[in-house]
Design a protein around this nucleic acid. Sequence first.
DNA 1: GTGTGGTGATAAATCGATTGATCAGGGAGA
DNA 2: TCTCCCTGATCAATCGATTTATCACCACAC
Lengths: 352, 352
Amino acid sequence: MTRVRISDVAAAAGVSTSTVSLVLNDRTSRISGETRERVREAAAAVGYTPNSIARGLRTQRTRTIGLVSDVIATTPFAGRMLAGAQDAAREHGHLLILVNTGADPAVEQEAIRALVDHQVDAMIYATMWHQVVETPEGLPDRTVFLDCRPADGTHPAVVPDEVAGGLAAVRELVGAGHERIAFVDIAEPNPPVASGLRHQAYLEVLAEAGITPDPAWHVHGEETTAASGRVAAERLLDLPPHRRPTAIFCFNDRMAAGAYVAVHHRGLDVPGDVSIVGYDDQQLVAGELDPPLTTVALPHYEMGRWATEVALGAREPPATPDQTYRMPCPIVRRDSVSSPPAAAANSSRRRA
Amino acid sequence: MTRVRISDVAAAAGVSTSTVSLVLNDRTSRISGETRERVREAAAAVGYTPNSIARGLRTQRTRTIGLVSDVIATTPFAGRMLAGAQDAAREHGHLLILVNTGADPAVEQEAIRALVDHQVDAMIYATMWHQVVETPEGLPDRTVFLDCRPADGTHPAVVPDEVAGGLAAVRELVGAGHERIAFVDIAEPNPPVASGLRHQAYLEVLAEAGITPDPAWHVHGEETTAASGRVAAERLLDLPPHRRPTAIFCFNDRMAAGAYVAVHHRGLDVPGDVSIVGYDDQQLVAGELDPPLTTVALPHYEMGRWATEVALGAREPPATPDQTYRMPCPIVRRDSVSSPPAAAANSSRRRA
DNA sequence: GTGTGGTGATAAATCGATTGATCAGGGAGA
DNA sequence: TCTCCCTGATCAATCGATTTATCACCACAC
């Protein structure tokens, strides 16, 4: 059983293929109503849908969009990014072609070439952790960077607004009355872009609250794991009582989970003795901790959507020089923040 | 800057487009070595790569494969499945077109039609939880089902071998000397396919070990969450000492995490007092529990690969009537299983 | 009666490759 | 010398749509 072609519709309706094409594409300026009707009925009767390949060859538009990413497997966020891109693509009548390069530059080059050969209408270049990247060779003009931005600012890009997210997170702690607030960061070498930005936000909020940060409050884990977070948090809890933080802002939720372990291990309570805020709103972590973690969500789904819509021309990138949109990161309030313990609050007030 | 066409190569090499095509596709039976060389050099010099759309129209093969799935976002396993499919597709020179239907049948129909219109060479129909599904309309012959199988057995399919995985899990407990082994299951209505299969495996191992299962050992959680797992596990720990299980096989890792909480809440130890085995090997759960959880891995990456290879004809489906391959689920040994506590072991021996 | 203009539809070119049919030229055999 | 065959390459059809240019027909005005 072979595919139904436009000539089959033409034969069934007793007209030429030109007429069928004009009718079905609504270029009906010079086709009579009666003929239109007949063509539509014939098309429905034989179950005709146009062959996208043939159409693409003629029109030079394939209604596909290519998405190149470094790793789709190893992060739980990738799915949301893909889902956003995919939903937006579908809403605009496009299909999403996905290539996962495994961060291998040779594979990446090959992938870009293959997608260009397939005449994708637009391209998205995505990484799974916010970073600044060199622009690969061969990308079409209609390329948007997703969760990364090109060093040379040649293409539109969307990344999380880490600073605004960090501000919201730390203000949440200041707003609850904390004054001794620590930041569990991620160590050198090659800290993620987000590390510097979130730290910057941390310092900014302390400054606006008139708090002089104790350098001992800025600790580092080796990796972004719970185990590393625990080790780093323990260094905070080892501080003498009057310097020990009553609140901890953690680089991410996994490290926050480690901080929980450290706190509980001392027989202390979250949030009664130590309030904790994370970052990422990572499923299966933030929500399942006890108590559930207050954190800042990374808007992966929305970023995926934004990138796709800009790539398809359905939305304008920001008119700034770097064409980079910083997507807001909403704070997710759960139960890991409360006011500081009375003794600490007193000691703070004494110091103030 | 317009694309380089085959005619540009032909002009550069001073030959016809036919000759260029024959040379570049290695149909060189009647082309002299010297001409071949000249064409290859010209093609490289002008940077020619064939337009896949035009080629696809002529050859009726697009070197694309469509993957339709219900939800790619909400499960952490989806990424591994996609990665397996994507890697296999790339190795066979194919691109992967992804459509996420959100489990909406109308969207699904639309997606299948769009992929067929784009002349995909093969299709994969995937779900994110092992299930038996009705075969949707309009799927091409070269369709493979992934993590689900068609009720009518008309297409090849790959699913996890839940029974073999369950056997391995429970044998791990029997092998450690346990005799009072419980199964934390998931409740009606509509339990997943895996539930029945894993329970079947549980009963089978107990039977082969000569253990008569106490019906009280089979408990159910409302959902597959940690909270439900905890509630179900508490019912086990409430049993009188001589009936209380020394080991628990949990339907999945999240419920196992709940079982940990229940055990710890009684001041008991994992695995000292209660050994626990999960299922899924879910990242960020199994490995991060304290102690790390012994569990059974779902081979999502391998299933994604298998489905793609079969769809592309690079591998044969099983010759069984249902054409369904049950992929082995390897056991992942961590630290949540030990021999039962001495008192329990003694009591067991007395009973034996 | 002949041009003129408008209407409704079609013929044919086109997108860029692949491929079966064809052709030019040279050497071998009759 | 003429035919036949082989080699090396090209011609032209083809895939299935879209779109521009063209055509047939009729009504109307002059």
